[in-house]
Every structure is written in C-alpha cells, then in structure tokens.
Nucleic acid binder design. Structure first.
Length: 926
RNA sequence: GGGCGGUUAGCUCAGUUGGCUAGAGCGCUGCGUUGACAUCGCAGAGGUCACUGGUUCAAGUCCAGUAUCGCCCACCA
C-alpha cells in the first residue's frame, strides 16, 4: 500500500454530495493500490471466492443488463473481500460472432459494401479494427461502474487460451462421437445467411392465413378425379416441395385411401405423391391431413425420414424460391405465397381460407422470419452432456437462485435436441476440420470468389494440431471447413478457458486448481439456456466437475411503463447517462435494491432520485460527524474509538445494539443472496435510526459537554460505511478516507474496500436498552404529535409532563435531556404519578409505557381532546378485543409456543392499562 | 398444449422456516429556513394483502381452485 488518498480534494466539497468529483479518483486509488487482485489482503489458506464475469459482447456499449450484473457481482465480491477471503473477479469480453458480424456488416452496408466485396481476410481485419475501438470503451464503462475486478486477467474469447480450449473441446467431442456433421433440417436466417440453433429462434404470435387446399386423387391412368384430400397449410408456396400427404394411422376417414396418390394442385406440376400414415399427424387439427414438406418443416422432415422420402428444397438460402418452384422460381417466399394461393383459388383447389393465429420463428439477431431447411451442418449430440448437467443440478452440486428456475432448467435439459454449432459466418472460431481435396473431391464444391461449400459425405480431419497431410491418401492438398462455431460454444467454455484450460503439458494449472469451480455465476435469466446450460454441460465434460456452485439469475430491467427496452421503442436507458445524472452509487443502489432475484424491475427517475438522496444524506450525516471530530479536543492518536467501552448512556447502548442487530440481519440476508433486502435494511438503519434518532440525540451531549457521544458516533458511522460499501462503494470510501484518521486502532486497512465487514459476533445485543429507548422514542413522537395536533409553533418550548410506568422511570429520567430537546419539551417534568401532573386545560396522550400531559392553556379545545382520546380508545379497545379473543382460545394456549402466549398476555395487560387510563382521562374531561 | 411468475397504500415495490398494530420510497395533507443535509426535518391521511374454499390455536405467508396480467417452452401444419 503506497498511494495515500489525497484528502485535500474534499476541501472543496460541501453541502450536496457531488459524485462526479469523487468517483474517478476513488477508483484510481483502489486500482493503483492493487485492491482488485485476488490475493491482496487475503488469508491464503481460505477457500477463494470466485466470480467469472459474463463477458459483454465487444459490439456496442454497456446496457442496463450489464449494469445489473456488474452491480451484483461487485457487491458480492466486495462483501467477500471484506470478509477477508481471497477473491477473484475475472473480467472478459466475448467476440459475439453473429452479433458483431451483423454490426460490422451494417456499417459496410452504409458504405455500399458487403463482406464479399472485402473478402474474408479483409473483413476479419475490419472487425478487429472495430473491436479495437469498442474493447477499451467497454472496459472503461465497467470501471466507471466501480467494478473491482482483476483487470490484469481480462480475457477475450479469441485469445490464445480460449482458442486452444475451443480446439481441444471440439476435438474431444468429435473423437467421442458427440460432434458430427450431417444434412439435417436447421433454422436458417435468410438475411445473415447462416444456420441458427434452436434457441436463437424467437417465436412471435402472428395472424396468418390457413389455406385449405384440395389435392385431387388420380385414377390408374393418372387422370384427375373429382375427390381428393383437403389439407390445411400456412405455407402454400412450399407445395412444390411436397412429397406426400400424411394422416394419422388411426384416422378412420382415410383408412380406405391409404397408399393412393394425389396430384400437386399447382400450375405446372403433374407430380403425384402418396397418401401415407404417420402417428405424428394430429387428426384433430385442420382437416386431419398434413402435406409433407421435409425440406422446410421440422416435423415433416422427421416424417419424411421415417418413410424414406427425400426432401426437396424450394426455398433458397436468401428466401427466394428455387428452380424447383417452376414458374414461381425466383420470387420471394412471401410474394409467392400470395400468388400460389391466388392460383389455387382460380384453379378450384382452394376450398377455404381462414385467418389463423400461429407462432412464427424469427431470427434473434436479424429479426427476419427463419426458414427451416435442410443443410449440411455440424452438431453436438447433447444427450449425454445434458444427462450430467441434469445430475449436478438435481443433486445440488449446482444451486440455482431463485430456486424456481431450477425446474425451468431441468425441463429444458430434458427436452434438449442436438445443438447446431456451425455458422456460415466469418467472425468467430473457425471450425477445426479439414478435408482432402483429392479424397473428398466430389464433396468439395467451389463457389464464387474462392468460397467453398462442403457437401454431405465428406470426411473431416479433426486433430489438435492443424493437419498438413491427408491420413488416407497422404496428399497435402487440404482445405479447412469454411464455417465458424456458434459463439456460445466458446462462451460455454468460459468458466475454465479463462483460468488457463487447457494447460499445456508441464505448465502449472494453479489457477484452475485454485479457482475452478467458481463460486457464483451471476447473469440474467434470459440467457439460462444459451449460456448457463452450455457452461454446465461443457464444464462437466471438460473438467469433470460443474463450473460453479451457485447460479444467481437476475431479472430484466424495464422502463417506467414496464416495457422491455428496445431500440425500436426508443426507450433504452443508458446506465452511464443515469450515472452522470444521479451518481454511480445511486444507480447501483437502485439496481441492487430494486428487485428480488429472478424478478424484473422498472427503472424510474423517481427511484434514482431516492437513491441519490440517500447518498447525499449519508454524505451530510458523515459531514456532521467529521465536523464534530475535527473540533473535538479528544486525542487522535488512539482514535476516539478507544473510549467506546465507556459508552453507557441509554442512546449509546441503544444504537450500538441496533448496529449489531442490522449487522446480524444483513449477514443472514447476504447468505441467502437477498442483496436487495439487505441494502434496504441498511438504508433504513442509517437513515431512520442512526441519523434521525441517534445523531439528533447526540447533539444534546455535544452541546452540554456532559460526556462525549463522539466514540459512538464514529463507530456507528464506521460500521454503516462498512455495511453499505458493497452497494455504494464510492461515497462510502470517500467518507471513510476522511474518517480513517479518527479511527485509531479500529482502522484495520488503508481503504474501506479492504476493511473488515461487521460480523454477527462482534457485540452482544442489549435488548434492555433497545426496549427502553423505544419507549423514549414513543414519548418523543407522542409529544410531537400532540403539538402538531394543536398547531403549536414548531420552535416553541412547551411545558411537558411525562408519567412513565414505574419500571421505566429511571430510563426516562436518564433520557430527559434528549426528550426535552427532541420534543421541544421545556420545562420537562417527569413525575411518578398521574396526579402530580395538571388536569385542566391540558392535552394528553396515553402510551403503553407512559402517559404525557401538555398544559396548553387556551389552546386546548375540549371537544378536540375528546375526539383525539376517543380515537385512541377505540383503537385500543379493538386491539384488546383481538388479544383477549386469542387468549380465550383454548387451542392457542395449548398449542402456541410459550413465548408467543406470553407476549399475547403481556400485550393484553398493557392494553387494559391503556384502556383504563384513557377512560379516566376522558371521564375527567366532562 | 405444458411450465413459471405477478396481483399488497394513488404509483413503484419489499415482506424466505405461518406469530406483536402489514412496511418503504414517491405522491398527497399540515407544520417547519433549530449552525450535517430543503437532494432536508416533524406530524398525518391512505391497504377487506385479486377472489373462493381448505389446513392451522394462528394465513399476506401453506394447500386446492378461479379470475386477470405477463413471461418461458412446445413439431398443431
């Protein structure tokens, strides 16, 4: 620790907290002093707390989702760091294959270019240039968020080690037979011109048309008959690719006709197709008959496979129709749909048209309607991987927060299908497969501009090192597979590729051994399938152990109207802009306390304002304490904290016990991952108890000089800053740097970021003090209330009598100075008997532990007094009835725990006394 | 078609082993420029905890069902 924090910078600060003057210097101070490194200030024997950061896409800028992630992870890391555990928060970035390529292609389009104009190599260079711009911007933004991650370990999915991890995993899975290549029906994005995986397709309900089309039977000589089979379809343009009509085998309507042939009812087509039976057909939908188009429908493809029917491709890669479409060839699929329907109608084959609500798949990235089509792609057979990924969750090796997400995860895993991992893109990890131009000459098709496609039946050579000769023929004319991998393939390895896996022979695997598996994986629930599921599958496969112990899923941040943020709605909130406006701590606190795990939250300016106000309140409360410390003559060599043990005033004992109480609560909430509730509890404590009560009470002794509250003020401020630091790191550190010189031995670090977090065992609770001070609070509040009711001038001192219950007398007397000041009650007379207080021209209130009397003279209005007391009495009576009914219940006495019964009895007794006092008070008014 | 979540004050939301009078912020009403803070203080109004039934001594909390809004998954063309 070398860099001292320059306190002089705070000289200019006063009044309102100005985050913009504080945040950057504080961050630099932490980073320069090495606080983000994992071993600093930590006990090396302890188990490390590790978080691998979800890598933001190198595309674009940080959005609110990142802000939530960084806030929560930073809070967790800071908490564990303050617990003295070795902590590692490993940051990184994702090359984000399709997303980044899409952005760069859009840039090119604005220049009137396509990636083909540049060629593969130049295009990749162009993307690297772009990444060179966005990378530093993104990390700078994360720094602004206050992320205390270990920047020295920043990883990128295209770095050498992650590349090696991809290679190794691909080779292992291929060798295991879990990766294979083949012609299957996949989801095709006709704009990006690439295959997609199932999860990259988003279904939207849309109103379409359901056309009922008659396929006529033909006689033996092929002549068309009047009857036929009516099917219902949403895609008449795919009729040229029909290979059969299928019905359910048990469907009685069609039994006699099975095996007969029908003719394609489309102009220019004479093709006959069979009527077949398959149990995949739902006899209740539409007409109960289904046209089978294996080339463009998942279900049809499967039915086709079962019946040995070859798919026909009628929709081309770009969404236009192929030559197979006859006179419709070259038309766009939507255009053709309309025309085909029109022709069917004109030719008398269109039986009926109805509107139809159905789900249409769109590409997650480009938004265009996905075309299912048959294509040669690489797949991961996920069955075994999923089985293990299910096991580790079922058996609790991985815990998902919130727990309910576990069933979502398991359900998805149970229904998992082969994962299409090849993409016809240029940006990403090139598939490490080669083909021999000689042996696979028939399968290698060279297209324009040196592009090639690899047909089915080619023999890929997949090895750890780039192959140079064909193992079959010994030739050296090899060509690499042109495709790249799904970006989530490399993301799925993130948990260990960032820690040095696969470590080369002889290379130490320290990081892996020490930090794998990580402690918490924190991310949005929207990428549970994309990412979390894949990380668990691949982590288990490569490492033989699940990649993390806990998955913490946060919800989506929505706008003030509860809408999802989107560019098209133009309602995207920029986190940095909000931070400029309200301060980063305010943004963080709002995001962290705004929701519970897995639930969405709305971000509004009102909430941000509230958090900003809290930061400001803390700043000013601290300013008060610091100001008093500066004026105090007390020694600073040992710090004022040395005298903490002398704190014997009731309010001291009370706030120390309350500090301990909130410490215990917060500790428990932390352990249950209830960060939001913990933050709220701390805010309530600091504002509602420490500042509103203790600081106000402390002023009495500061002025009288009758024993100093400074040790307690200092200690509780110190604890408050420590407790709050994970949520609001900047303002707490800024204050703590000013407080530290006053802490003496209690200053256990040079920076709050490395100070010790308050612990449940730090101090005994003092329940007697808590109870007694609660009575003082009640008395003060009641006096204020009476004064407000009678519109007594706020600044005016009023003679006030307090008649405490006998048991309370000494505590109330001890706190008389506080009551006097906080309630503006002077002279304050504490008397043992009600009879010692005046009875005429008074306003009064009856509390559980005391009665108060204010002789307000002419201000007192008997009618108003009757109303006030009557209302109180009604309330007491109502509660008393409830309490007595409960006690009269034999079951309650018999079955409720003893302490609950006891409490109920005490309450009833207290209420009876209040009732009697109120009644006699009322009687005396007459 | 399955699965999940929400429904608590005018608004936005807390309330996790069932147990004192259900809380907060914002908004609203009244008072207030007391030397930390008007980004503030004090006091107040405001809720049959969506509905129905059940379990229990006791239900906002557990169970069943209903309504309604939302999300996810799914090969009904």
């Amino acid at each position: 620790m070398t860099t001292e924090f320059d306190l002089s910078r705070f000289d200019q600060l006063s009044g309102a907290y100005d985050a913009s003057l504080v945040e950057d210097p504080i961050y630099a101070f932490w980073e320069d002093n090495g606080w983000f490194r994992p071993t600093e200030g930590a006990d090396s024997d302890a188990e490390p707390f590790t978080v691998i950061m979800p890598p933001p896409n190198v595309t674009g800028v940080l959005h609110l989702g990142h802000a939530v992630t960084l806030t929560i992870e930073d809070a967790l890391i800071r908490w564990h760091r303050m617990l003295g555990e070795p902590t590692l928060w490993l940051p990184g970035l994702d090359h984000a294959g399709i997303a980044t390529q899409s952005v760069v292609e859009q840039q090119l389009a604005r220049e009137g270019l396509t990636r083909h104009d540049l060629g593969r190599e130049s295009f990749e260079e162009r993307v690297w240039d772009w990444v060179g711009l966005t990378r530093p911007r993104i990390t700078a933004q994360a720094r602004r968020m206050g992320a205390s991650c270990d920047w020295e370990r920043t990883a990128f999915t295209l770095d050498p080690t992650p590349r090696a991890a991809v290679r190794r995993t691909f080779v292992d899975l291929f060798t295991d037979g879990k990766i294979y290549r083949g012609a299957r029906i996949i989801n095709w994005d006709p704009q990006m011109l690439t295959a997609l995986s199932d999860v990259e397709v988003e279904y939207q309900e849309e109103e379409g048309k359901l056309w009922h089309v008659r396929y006529p039977f033909v006689d033996e000589r092929g002549r068309e008959l009047d009857d036929g089979v009516v099917i219902a379809t949403t895609r008449p343009e795919t009729i040229p690719a029909d290979v059969a009509i299928a019905v359910h085998p048990d469907d009685q309507r069609w039994q006699p006709h099975l095996g007969r042939r029908v003719r394609l009812p489309l102009r220019g087509f004479e093709r006959l197709i069979p009527l077949i039976a398959d149990s995949g057909v739902d006899p209740k939908f539409g007409t109960g008959a289904l046209k089978i188009t294996p080339g463009h429908d998942q279900l049809d493809f499967e039915i086709g496979e079962r019946h040995g029917l070859e798919p026909i491709r009628v929709v081309d890669w770009d969404g236009s129709l192929t030559v197979e479409a006859g006179l419709y060839a070259g038309m766009d699929r939507d255009e053709a749909r309309v025309l085909v329907a029109q022709h069917l109608d004109e030719d008398g084959y269109l039986v009926q048209t109805e509107t139809h609500l159905h789900n249409v798949g769109h590409s997650q990235r480009s938004g265009v309607v996905v075309e299912p089509l048959v294509s040669n792609q690489w797949f991961v057979d996920t069955d075994d991987l999923a089985a293990e990924a299910v096991r580790v969750v079922r058996e609790g090796e991985v815990r998902i927060v919130p727990e309910r997400s576990t069933s979502v995860y398991l359900q998805w895993m149970d229904n998992i299908r082969p994962w299409c991992i090849s993409r016809q893109l240029w940006w990403g990890h090139r598939i490490p497969a080669w083909y021999c131009r000689v042996c696979d000459a028939d399968a290698i098709i060279s297209g324009e501009e040196g592009q090639i496609t690899i047909d089915e039946g080619a023999h890929p050579i997949v090895e750890l090192e780039d192959p140079t000769i064909c193992p079959t023929c010994g030739g050296a004319d090899l060509v690499q597979d042109p495709d790249v991998l799904d970006t989530w393939f490399s993301s799925g390895l993130w948990t260990h590729s960032t820690l040095g896996w696969p470590n080369a022979a002889g290379e130490p695997a320290n990081d892996l051994a020490r930090f794998y598996p990580s402690s918490v994986m924190e991310t949005g629930y929207d990428i549970l399938f994309f990412w979390v599921a894949r990380m668990i599958m691949l982590g288990c496969y490569n490492m033989g152990a699940a990649p993390f112990r806990t998955v913490y899923l946060h919800g989506l941040v929505r706008d003030a109207q509860g809408r999802k943020m989107s560019k098209s709605l133009d309602n995207v909130i920029d986190p940095l802009e909000k931070a400029d406006q309200y301060g980063m701590d305010a943004l963080r606190f709002t995001l962290a306390t705004g929701s519970t795990p897995g639930n969405d939250m709305r971000l509004t300016d009102e909430r941000l304002e509230g958090s900003r106000n809290f930061a400001n309140k803390l700043w000013n409360g601290a300013r008060f304490v610091l100001g008093e410390l500066a004026q105090s003559t007390e020694t600073q060599s040992t710090g004022v904290m040395g005298e903490l043990a002398d704190a014997s005033a009731l309010e001291d004992r009370w706030i120390l016990s309350r500090t301990q109480a909130v410490t215990e609560t917060v500790d428990e909430l932390w352990r249950g991952f209830q960060l939001g509730e913990a933050g709220r509890q701390i805010q309530d404590f600091i504002w509602g108890e420490f500042f509103d009560w203790y600081v106000e009470a402390s002023k009495v002794r500061l002025r009288s000089g009758d024993g100093s509250p400074l040790p307690v003020l200092t200690h509780v401020l110190d604890c408050s800053l420590r407790l709050l630091h994970p949520w609001m790191p900047f303002v707490t550190e800024a204050i703590w740097q000013q407080l530290r010189p006053h802490l003496g031995q209690a200053a256990d670090a040079d920076a709050l970021i490395g100070a010790r977090y308050p612990q449940p065992g730090d101090r005994e609770r003092d329940l007697a003090a808590e109870g007694a001070f609660a009575a003082v609070q009640e008395i003060v509040t009641a006096v204020r209330q009476v004064r407000a009711d009678y519109r007594v001038q706020a600044g005016q001192w009023v003679e006030t009598y307090v008649v405490p219950q006998t048991s309370m007398i000494s505590d109330v007397e001890a706190s008389s100075a506080i009551i006097e000041v906080l309630a503006r009650a002077r002279p304050l007379k504490i008397v043992a008997e009600r009879s010692q207080a005046p009875h005429d021209q008074i306003a009064s209130a009856v509390l559980p532990l005391a009665e108060i009397v204010l002789p307000l003279g002419g201000l007192v209005d008997l009618a108003q007094e009757r109303t006030r007391l009557g209302k109180d009495l009604d309330n007491v009576l109502k509660r008393l009835r409830g309490a007595e009914a409960k006690l009269a219940n034999a079951g309650f006495r018999a079955k409720a725990p003893a302490n609950v019964v006891q409490q109920a009895e005490a309450l009833a007794e207290e209420l009876q006394r209040q009732r009697d006092d109120l009644a006699s008070r009322l009687a005396s008014l007459d």
